[in-house]
């Protein structure tokens, strides 16, 4: 790959810069992947709330495993699915820290279902960013708990058959039934308006923690164009036309 140096013209004032909470490291996400947008939004939220110096992030197993390289704050890498338990340990040990986990659908809604449900039910004062792209990205496109009916993956080559593999798990709806959580919302980042809404939700989820309101989770319905085997633009279209049918956007629980 060749890199072309771009000369910055004199008098140029950048209007879109890297958030302070992000390092110089390049993201490892694929082109068109929504992780890039979401990771950035988290960094912007941390910047805007001025909490970089007391934030501890929890990196999952999966495409976001490199998060500690991207962020300029303390980080811990958790075992697959265990981020909410690790977050509990950190937050209970030091309640002054702002603790967030960043997890995919396989991590949060399959192998880590119990940890997630019980952290939510205890109302742990943590912030959870839940990226639902309906697939296992890092391992090569296997069926996720959120894979849509009929959707082809490498482990459902004929499409997900709900008679044998069950239905997409609506984790946020499940969690919203509990008394513990303070804020459960589902957002998306397929266009500018939704990116801005998602950012507002992420800020609120962090603010809740600062104010001691308890468990906040922002689910973001995302596209994985690589494993969908579509272009980034078609990935966005997939979210709007397919995924949102099963995962409607909006707040599922707000306790103020």
């Amino acid at each position: 790959m060749s890199v072309t140096e771009v000369k910055v013209p004199a008098g140029y004032v950048p209007v879109y810069t890297k958030p302070k909470s992000l390092s110089e490291a390049r993201f490892t996400y694929c082109p068109g992947c929504h992780h890039g947008i979401i990771t950035r939004l988290v960094a912007e939220a941390i910047d805007e709330l001025g909490i970089q110096e007391r934030t501890v992030g929890i990196a999952p197993v999966g495409c976001a495993v490199f998060l500690s390289d991207f962020f300029r704050c303390d980080f811990v890498q958790a075992a697959h699915g265990r981020a909410c338990a690790v977050a509990t340990g950190i937050k209970r040990a030091n309640p002054d820290l702002i603790v967030f986990s960043y997890q995919g659908d396989g991590d949060l809604a399959a192998i880590g279902t119990a940890e997630t449900v019980h952290a939510a039910n205890r109302g742990e004062n943590i912030t959870v960013i839940f990226v639902n792209n309906q697939i296992y990205g890092m391992t090569g496109g296997e069926m996720a708990p959120t894979t849509l009916p009929g959707m082809r993956t490498v482990t459902t080559p004929e499409g997900r058959d709900v008679r044998t593999t069950g239905y997409p798990l609506r984790m946020s709806e499940m969690l919203a039934q509990l008394d513990g959580p303070s804020y459960i919302t589902r957002q998306a980042v397929f266009d500018v308006r939704h990116v801005q809404m998602a950012k507002k939700a992420i800020i609120k989820a962090f603010k809740n923690q600062i104010e001691g309101k308890g468990f906040s989770l922002v689910e973001i319905v995302a596209a994985c164009p690589t494993n969908l085997r579509v272009s980034p633009v078609e990935g966005n279209k997939w979210v709007v036309e397919q995924a949102l049918k099963y995962f409607p956007l909006g707040d599922l629980k707000v306790r103020d």
């Binding site: 501890v56 811990v76 958790a78 075992a79 265990r82 338990a85 690790v86 977050a87 509990t88 340990g89 950190i90 937050k91 209970r92 040990a93 030091n94 820290l97 119990a114 940890e115 449900v117 019980h118």
Partner: peptide, 21 residues
């Protein structure tokens, strides 16, 4: 803290240990 499982309990230990306690 009584955890939901042994798996969760040891991962809470992991978190608390990471926080230096």
């Amino acid at each position: 803290l009584q955890a939901e499982s042994e798996v969760a309990a040891i991962n809470m230990v992991y978190g608390a240990a990471a926080a230096g306690v």
